[in-house]
Design a protein around this nucleic acid. Structure first.
Lengths: 332, 332
DNA sequence: ATGAAAGCGCTAACAG
DNA sequence: CTGTTAGCGCTTTCAT
């Protein structure tokens, strides 16, 4: 049935086989412009028979804009980014856009290099995390003419489109919640803040709010590696060994908080009576814990969706605040 | 300093500015062919001055092969796939390849449609999960002439390259381990097996091994949704409500197992004396639990790395077995 | 060592 | 409604 094709059927061959001109085939395939039903059938039959797969490389070059959307993300380990990609990819697929990605490891220099490589594909948009980019990146992105979307942060000036929420507000509300609950000796366990600037913003506004509330941060433990359950457990262990009498700990992320929770379980530290725990992200896992995790739920998937929708619609420059939700939980 | 560029500097303009021919610029930029040091400097200066970013769409069209690698993955929620992407993307970036992806939601029909869309970009390779593809997908992929890599499964015949491990062996070893430990009344909690065929393979060989061992599966609870901590908790709750006297439960994944663990914690069921728990994947989280999770650690990141390396090297067709590691843990 | 010219496969006017 | 004709921006012979 299926003959071995010469590996690459072109539009010209389809046109020839269907007995029509190339542009007609092009019109039919893109369902754009006008053509008769009969022509359409002939073309589709030829496409089918020859097993023709359009070459979008050629198509993109010939037309103006590409349907590539480039994601330059810090990490794939931090669940935040797969979630954003998930939201975006669903929308992009519906609109026949293709997602391209690369991973910076939270390194701005690498971000610049990868953004440059991405730009070479002339994408319709480049999606980046947050506002902290090198001057070189900014200049290059601005000059590229493609849409720029900054994700998951709203504390800064957007280059073009921004979608997310305020990390500063999240830090503030977390602190306010703990104060309201009556905790006064509060500590912090986090991962590398210089790299994850959004976590850094949460932390600094968290601290400010505590000070304003008259209960400044008692102690902190910053771990070198990435956010992880193991680091959370280790971090809390170290923090408690150093700082006595803490009544609550704020974690940079839910996975860190879960690690802290495990530490308490293992050590028999009663939660929240002896020690309260507060996280960030609102992962599903927090809901399934014996005591639901007190945390802030962030709209990660929605961030991706909205960002993709704005790009597809070629919306004007804007900053979209998706907000977040504080979940009281049972650990604080 | 930076003048507003006409949005799109071309190689021809660089050539003009440098006072050389287009092909010379092309040679210098790709560092291929011969040219004098002086020429090189002139070209690079022009590139710098004009802020030229090569157009890889045009480059790819003009040359033969593209440096795009397409991933058609079932999900981004299941951590397995971000892990694979992570391993692959590091290798691809080093070799100046670009990763493109789309998500099938475990739907073979959607896989076919997305694979077709991917092929339109004429990628160097298409990476897919496992062996279960529609006839249409297989025919199309075969005809495409690009490399095909099937990931995370080795129980079947590879189309071209396969990288992963045997899910059947994993199921078998899990069962053998539980039997060796003396468990005889064993249950199973899993997510949708028709969609996740790899989980299905583990489950069926798990059951076979139990039967051979004279302790056939006592009960199972299959949840409709995706693998998640909440489903694991719910699943175990339901299973225990129906089946009395179980002494061990095998979960389709570590997150499901963690949910089961949480259920036991909440209900005061002693682990492993009253009930043993066994997972699959070897997530970091399992190591941080108060009792390390008994599970099988799979080489997810390595799968991505090796797959990418084989593609970059244009290696001959082959199946690479990366194996897996049984972690005894403390929950079984 | 370097330039000229011919495409790569398609889209986009422009005529008919 | 449909065919012809130029390119899109680059790589690649092939001369020079």
């Amino acid at each position: 049935m299926e003959l071995k094709q010469p590996a690459t059927v072109t539009l010209a061959e389809v046109a020839e086989a269907a007995g029509v001109g190339e542009s007609t085939v092009s019109r039919v395939l893109r369902n754009h412009g006008s053509f008769s039903g009969k022509t359409r059938e002939r073309v589709m039959a030829a496409v089918e028979r020859l097993g023709y797969v359009p070459n979008r490389i050629a198509g993109t070059l010939a037309s103006t804009g590409s349907r590539l959307v480039a994601f330059v993300i810090p990490s794939l380990s931090n669940i935040v980014f797969p979630d954003v990609l998930r939201g975006a990819s669903a929308v992009l697929e519906e609109n026949r856009y293709q997602a391209v990605f690369s991973v910076t490891d939270y390194d701005p220099g690498k971000e610049e290099a990868l953004a440059a490589a991405m730009l070479a594909w002339r994408p319709a948009a480049v999606m980046l995390a947050g506002y902290e980019h090198t001057d070189g990146s900014v200049k290059m992105l601005r000059a590229s003419g493609c849409r720029i979307v900054e994700l998951l942060d709203l504390d800064g000036d957007a280059l073009d489109i921004a979608v997310g929420f305020s990390n500063r507000a999240a830090g503030r509300e977390s602190a306010a919640f703990l104060l309201k609950r009556g905790y006064r000796r509060i500590g912090y366990v986090g991962h590398d803040l210089n790299r994850d600037t959004r976590a850094g913003k949460r932390f600094s506004s968290f601290c400010e709010t505590l000070e304003t509330g008259g209960a400044p941060l008692v102690a902190r433990e910053i771990l070198a590696g990435a956010s992880s359950v193991e680091n959370g457990r280790l971090g809390l262990e170290r923090l408690l060994a150093r700082a006595r009498g803490l009544d609550a700990v704020y974690f940079s992320n839910d996975d860190m908080a879960l690690g802290g929770y495990f530490h308490c379980l293992a050590e028999g530290i009663a939660i929240p009576s002896k020690l309260a725990i507060f996280g960030y992200n609102g992962l599903d896992i927090g809901r399934a814990m014996p005591q639901p995790l007190s945390t802030i739920r962030t709209p990660r998937v929605a961030t991706g969706q909205i960002a993709a929708q704005l790009v597809v619609a070629n919306a004007p420059p804007q900053a979209v605040d998706l907000g977040f939700e504080l979940i009281e939980g049972a650990t604080a």
